[in-house]
Each structure stands twice: as structure tokens, then as C-alpha cells.
Design a protein around this nucleic acid. Structure first.
Lengths: 161, 161
DNA sequence: GCCAACCTACTCGGATAATTCTTGTCCGAGTGAAGGTGG
DNA sequence: CCACCTTCACTCGGACAAGAATTATCCGAGTAGGTTGGC
């Protein structure tokens, strides 16, 4: 059980679009070349971000993707949910109701949620909260704090002067 | 991305062993019948719990599995790690170093951890902490609070008097 | 010289395979208990 | 009647397939911009 690599691709791509700054759309090919990714597969992930409202797509020649929101308005949770979907990490199959044990329990015994499910859901809530508390602007600020000249490196790597 | 169902199976099985109480080993077939699970696949999960030190296995006739620790000493995190392995939810592929952008950044720019990885790791820490704070005895207490006669239901379902 | 229509090249978008991981199944090695036999 | 040996049935443990999800790839619809011909 691990998150797909699409999340990492999406976050880095969003940050790169922010560093470029100018509202010009950037093509999937350029974004993929920035980190040596599969252009077609990255395109699939970016489509998820478009459907989630985080990106805008511009069709036609000189088209591409551009940020739909400022980084301050996008949390890490938004990105994860856009890429992975908002299904819960732990899906309770309600096995407590099945088998020789489950048959012994009257229906009234299942009126309250499964204790195992509740415990797992509580942990998942903590995970989502921690993701929601971090916006992309925070991540960007951390990266720049680690490497002050990062903005110029990105612009140069993408051919923007 | 979601946790395997083995986690749910393992927790319910551990609770059932605790409810039976007597230190007698219980076979995989009986435990599986309790919730109508695949005996062979449940056996595979229980082997993980044995390797993690949460269960003891008794071979031979009248053999089976028995708890190795009291429920107070086992956290939900212990069970999840035993079943799913302790690999991180988010594995950073370090794509920041690759491609036309990564090549622009000098080696010193990567001395600190990736900001994206740090953000995801922080959320995972919150998740693990929430799991570690809940021991199986707490989950058991919640289940009994919801269904007071649950202990007798389990014993009857497993044929223990 | 200016305008309009055409044409080309480039982009997103979704439909289509390959791979990896999870899930499920099967059979063999080992062990403890039961039953029979000899003392 | 007791102890020992043989046999047997039952259990775990790991090796072996099937299915699902992820990862990766390819091709078509659509659009903007450049080009060419006409006025």
C-alpha cells in the first residue's frame, strides 16, 4: 500500500508552473522534460488536476496548462484527492456481520459503526488534516528556503530566459 | 491507493482470540469460519503477525494460533505494519534531480530533503501517530460498549460453550 | 499593400496495452495425539 | 496395569496461479497560427 507516483509528479509540476510565473500555458512535453517524465502519463495526471479545478487547459497550437488558482489556495490534500480520488484509505468490508460469529449477533448489534473502522478512520482523518494544513505555497517556500536560487534554475531549465 | 483487506481481517482475528480468552490455540479454519473468510489467505496474514511477534503459532494436531501479547501492548500501528510492511505511504522518487530542471541545480541544492517528500512525510507521521495511540484493548472496549453481550456471541459462534 | 480563406503543425483528450501488486489457492513437511502391543 | 512404539490425522508454512489496480503508450479531434492567393 503506497501512494502512486502521480502525486509526486503533480506537485512538482504545479510548483514549476508557479515558478515560471507568466500566465502563458506550458505544454505537457515541456513539463515532462523538466523532470524526465513520461509525457503521455503526465498528461493523464494533469487532466485529473483540470477536472479538479486546479489547472486550466488551453487547446491548440501554443496551448498547454496553466494554474487556475494561486498556490495559497491549493492544499496538498487537494492535489492528493485530485490524483488518487477521494476514496478512503481503509475500506471496511463489514466482515463483523459475516460467518459463524456474525450470525450470532442480533441486528441491533450493528447499529453503531464498526470499532475497527472507526479506529482506522480516526487515523485517516489525522492524515487528511495534516495534508490540508499544508498549502502548496508552504511547500514552495520550503523548497526556496533550501535552495534560494531555485526559481532561476527552473526558468533556465524550462527555457524561459 | 487503499489499505489491503488483510488489516481488517487481522484486527478482527486478534480481537476474537482475546474474547475466547483461554490460552488454547485456535486453528486458521475456525478463525476464518468466524467471519466467513478464505482460510488459506487468512493463514498468510497470520504468518505475518507471527513474524511480527504478535501471535504464537502451535504446530501439529490441536494446534493453531494464540495471542503472544496482551491487547494493551499491541497498537493498531503494530498490526498495520505487520500486515502491510513498514514501507512509507509516499515514496519519493527524487524526480527533482532529473530532467532539464534537475540538471540546472548544483549538487549542493539537494543536500536538504525534498520539500514535497517532507510535506507528505509529515502527514504520514500524523497518521502513524494516530494509529499508535490506539491499542487493541481500546478498540475492543469500544466494540463491547456498542454491543455489551459481544463476548458471549463470539464464544458461542466459535463453539466455546 | 491589405484581406481572407486554406493548410499545416501542434496541443489536449480519451481509448488502448503492459506491468506490478494484491488477492486467492494448493500441496508438502512437521508435529502432537491416539491406539495398539509387549512387558 | 503401565510404558513404549507405530500409525495417523491435523496443523502450519511456503510455493504456485488468478484477478485487479497501477503504469505506460498510442492515436484521433480540435484549434491557433502561418502562408498563399486574390482583390
Amino acid at each position: 500500500m503506497r501512494t502512486g507516483k502521480g502525486v509526486e509528479w503533480a506537485v512538482h509540476t504545479l510548483l514549476n508552473l508557479a515558478w515560471l510565473g507568466d500566465g502563458e500555458p506550458v505544454s505537457t512535453a515541456q513539463l515532462a522534460a523538466g523532470h524526465d517524465l513520461s509525457a503521455s502519463y503526465l498528461n493523464k495526471q494533469l487532466q485529473h488536476l483540470v477536472k479538479a479545478g486546479l489547472l486550466e487547459s488551453v487547446p491548440g497550437a501554443r496551448g498547454g496548462f496553466r494554474l487556475a488558482l494561486p498556490l495559497e489556495a491549493v492544499s496538498m490534500l487537494d492535489v492528493v484527492l485530485a490524483i488518487e480520488g477521494d476514496e478512503p484509505l481503509f475500506h471496511c468490508a463489514e466482515i463483523r456481520r459475516c460467518g459463524s460469529i456474525g450470525e450470532q449477533v442480533p441486528e441491533s448489534g450493528f447499529s453503531r459503526p464498526c470499532a475497527v473502522n472507526s479506529a482506522m478512520a480516526q487515523a485517516e482523518t489525522a492524515w487528511r488534516r495534516a495534508l490540508a494544513e499544508q498549502c502548496l505555497a508552504d511547500v514552495q517556500a520550503t523548497a526556496v528556503a533550501h535552495t534560494p536560487a531555485l526559481t532561476s534554475y527552473v526558468k533556465r531549465g524550462m527555457g524561459h530566459d
